[in-house]
Design a protein around this nucleic acid. Structure first.
Lengths: 283, 283
DNA sequence: CCGCTCATTTGAGTTTTTCTCAATGATCGG
DNA sequence: CCGATCATTGAGAAAAACTCAAATGAGCGG
């Protein structure tokens, strides 16, 4: 069953290489799928010319039938799936989340749903004109579904080199003697993490502010000070030893949520996207 | 793609359990395949009733189409595959090999090729009326293909308990003081293994002969003496410690071959069987 | 009304399949 | 004759599917 679409593609191009490209597979994988099918059928579908392949009579006859059936199958499935809406989905998400968690997975979305078109926007607090929004915190609204998506635990981080030369950091109050990095978009993160200590630390610490989020992360990696970030977003840097999380016992537990109008659930396309999103960012 | 036949079966029975039975799967596996399909489509195909499932409108419409397409697909494939011959394949094989290596795998043959009918016969040395024959040794014949199938290494075996109480067995000549078990069908196995020593050992050893092969194996397990067998056929007993192989450095290396008329290769059904056979007894 | 049973689902872990990567063989154009 | 291209193969990695066991949730007989 798995090998049929592969065979169809190979037959259409009469080329393993081009079929592989179309299917986002390697030539080796395609070659093997065709062999599987041949072994199952107990006959050859292609003549293996030295650098090309040609149908056997049986292969050609079979291909014609399979080709028709598969395209009907695709039509049937598409009809069910496409169901009206062909305008792009508009999804809002925090910039960093988008960049680090969503973008790298986008390939798998388009692979699974070739017809899907999604436009991502950042920094749009209003749900008007959106099909869905990803954010931290906030409560459910009437007529809207809000579901947890991924952890968004808040923690200060800095580079190991900064830690080595900076003043001591035994407890949260010591932060008052450090350089704290802030991005304009999320200035409240420090307040949320410091809690009651915020006023005291704010009065004495030195701040460096960045226009756009993401920059403070680079600054932290460069050893300029202490940034506050969603831990999961800097997993790579931490694993690589380029950043360390401070006060691991003091993480503020929050999570990203996904919100959308209940009515969106009626759209198959939206549900495909939602299913994919939940898988893609689950970890 | 994989989930479509599963969905079709579930829809036809309106029951996960019965579909699972038909497909030789567990209910859990079937349940998951349907869920995969639903996730991919982004909509529900069944209403999950309390102890039963019912189509959603979309599910029913989709099923009807899928059902038709899949049955056409099966027809097309069967037409290619069945290609004339519907009389059973007749295959000859040594009784023990059949019983131990082939029978346990037969399930997978019928699962893969539901239409296949095979009749196995034993003890038929002539190729007349056979589609293929499995045997040890013998040479290729004109117009026939002979291909190696599986190792058939010859070695004496006995039970550990026999070994414990029997006379010493330091070398092959010691066998002359032992009880050797023979089956009527394969009396020559001892000669082949003993080689030049055969005459000497035969003159002095005590033999117990059995009418049908397989019996001498049971006798060996019971500690009655030393049998000579194809090693691979007693793998289970050796692994379980019920038999031990003697003189492991002195195995006679032979192998089972599969022979058939070249012309058989034109029959898809025969080729399916041959592909299956080679996989099934590969180890 | 309660415990039983049946059908489905779910969680965890294993097995099987499929895929990628790298290497090979073999032609074709230059 | 050489480099490039295309198909295949082997080995190991990744992903998918499957099994087993257990949980859920209802109907049903006692």
């Amino acid at each position: 069953m798995t090998s049929l679409p592969v065979f169809e593609a190979v037959g259409r191009h009469l080329s393993v290489a081009r079929a592989a490209e179309e299917l986002h597979l390697t030539a080796g994988a395609v070659s093997r799928q065709v062999q599987n099918l041949e072994a199952f059928l107990g006959l050859s579908l292609f003549e293996r010319g030295h650098r090309r392949i040609v149908f056997t009579p049986a292969g050609e006859a079979y291909w014609a039938k399979i080709h028709t059936l598969l395209s009907e199958l695709r039509d049937v499935t598409r009809a069910l799936s496409a169901d009206a809406d062909d305008r792009p989905l508009v999804i809002s998400a925090p910039r960093m989340f988008l960049q680090i968690r969503v973008m790298p997975a986008l390939g798998s979305l388009y692979r699974r749903h070739p017809g899907m078109v999604v436009r991502f926007v950042t920094g749009q607090p209003e749900l008007e004109g959106l099909d869905g929004a990803i954010f931290v915190g906030a409560g459910p609204r009437r007529g809207f579904v809000t579901e947890p998506l991924a952890p968004a635990n808040l923690s200060p981080v800095c580079s190991p080199s900064y830690l080595a030369v900076a003043p001591p950091l035994a407890n949260r109050h010591d932060l008052a003697r450090h350089t704290l990095l802030r991005s304009a978009e999320y200035t409240r993160n420090w307040e949320r993490w410091l809690g009651p200590d915020a006023a005291e630390v704010f009065a004495r610490a030195r701040f460096i502010d960045f226009e756009s989020s993401g920059l403070e992360l680079t600054a932290a990696e460069e050893g300029l000070g202490v940034a506050i970030v969603r831990l999961r977003l800097v997993k790579d840097q931490i694993d690589a030893g380029r950043l360390v999380a401070l006060f691991p016992e003091h993480v503020v537990h929050e999570h990203y949520s996904f919100t959308f109008a209940e009515s969106k659930l009626r759209s198959p396309r939206f549900r495909q996207f939602r299913n994919w999103l939940r898988e893609a960012v689950a970890s």
